[in-house]
């Protein structure tokens, strides 16, 4: 233990630091160019700094419309996903039934398969075969589909670590099923639902691939940014809006992670790393 833990070698330290810099450098660039005085190119270093672009961005009604649409879609999708995801988690947890394994695999598909699959499948089937007109409704359907798994993963992880004795104790003490749910299960699941909900919200708010296929005429915020990308004028406005978009998702996700840390199941909810914040061996084998 002692020698291995003594400290990382210089090479490892340098490599790790470089990878970290690689991850954060582009975000710094976005910030820098939100303040540049140039309107149509991104010279480095910026010739001057200004706050004007924030005023220009905030005055744009089309930006706010896209922003509101993104908020609306994310809010509805998250709500539906929380309902479906936690119900499914409740069904899968400690119950064996036909098709259980298949179902837990299918719930993963919308994020394991390329997003384009969900997008084109929903578009061609809903609009092509059933004449559902694309719009907010179809965007919500697409987003909910890949948000379910985020909530599901978080709730299942929590349920697994919740001792079944707690539920039995509650019943032994005379609580009804509803009371057990309300006073025992819910308080235990609350942070998992919150963490899952925030991650689902963030994922929906930033999504662009599925949205491209399912949307009607109105752009969501990422689509709006994408449309502005190839316009030569007022380019820093895009950076200002980009900063807003990042803040809207990063701050809640960061808070949710902090919150979930106390219960040690802070995951991306996307599978990746869902276990990494847990202490070793804390996950009971299923």
């Amino acid at each position: 233990m002692s020698r291995a833990r003594a400290g990382a070698g210089l090479g490892l330290r340098v490599a790790s630091t470089l990878v970290m810099l690689f991850l954060y450098f582009p975000l710094a660039i976005i910030v820098v160019y939100a303040f540049t005085t140039q309107s149509s190119s991104f010279t480095f270093p910026p010739p001057g700094l200004t706050l004007d672009w924030f005023g220009v961005a905030f005055a744009r009604e089309d930006m706010w419309e896209a922003f509101r649409l993104s908020l609306l879609v994310a809010a509805i999708s998250t709500t539906v996903a929380i309902t479906l995801g936690s119900l499914l988690a409740g069904a899968v947890y400690r119950t064996r039934f036909f098709g259980r394994e298949a179902l837990t695999f299918i719930v993963l598909l919308p994020i394991a398969l390329p997003g384009i699959v969900t997008g084109i499948a929903l578009r061609s089937t809903l609009s092509g075969l059933f004449d559902v007109s694309p719009g907010t409704f179809t965007i919500v359907i697409g987003h909910t589909t890949f948000c379910i798994v985020i909530v599901f993963n978080n709730v299942v992880a929590r349920l697994r670590r919740l001792s079944p004795n707690v539920v039995e104790a509650s019943a032994d003490l005379g609580a009804s099923g509803w009371q057990t749910f309300r006073h025992v299960l819910m308080p235990n699941l609350a942070t998992a639902l919150l963490a899952g909900g925030v991650l689902a919200f963030a994922l929906s708010f930033d999504e662009i691939i599925v949205t491209t296929f399912t949307r009607g005429g109105d752009p969501t915020l990422p689509i709006w940014i994408f449309q502005k990308l190839f316009r030569p004028r007022n380019r820093p406005v895009t950076n200002v809006v980009a900063l807003i978009a990042v803040t809207v998702t990063i701050v809640p996700v960061l808070l949710a992670q902090m919150l979930a840390r106390s219960s040690d199941d802070a995951g991306t909810g996307m599978g990746a790393g869902a276990t990494s914040a847990r202490p070793r061996g804390a996950i009971p084998a299923e």
Binding site: M20, L23, Y24, F25, P26, L27, I29, I30, Y33, F42, L199, A202, D206, I208, P222, I225, F226, L229, T238, N239, A242, A245, V246, T249, I250, V253, L254, Q257, T268, G273
Partner: peptide, 20 residues
Amino acid sequence: AVLMPLWSSYLVRALAWRQI
């Protein structure tokens, strides 16, 4: 720190590389 870039808009990070 690894998670944060993942949860900041993918489009925004791509935009940054066009500027880099």
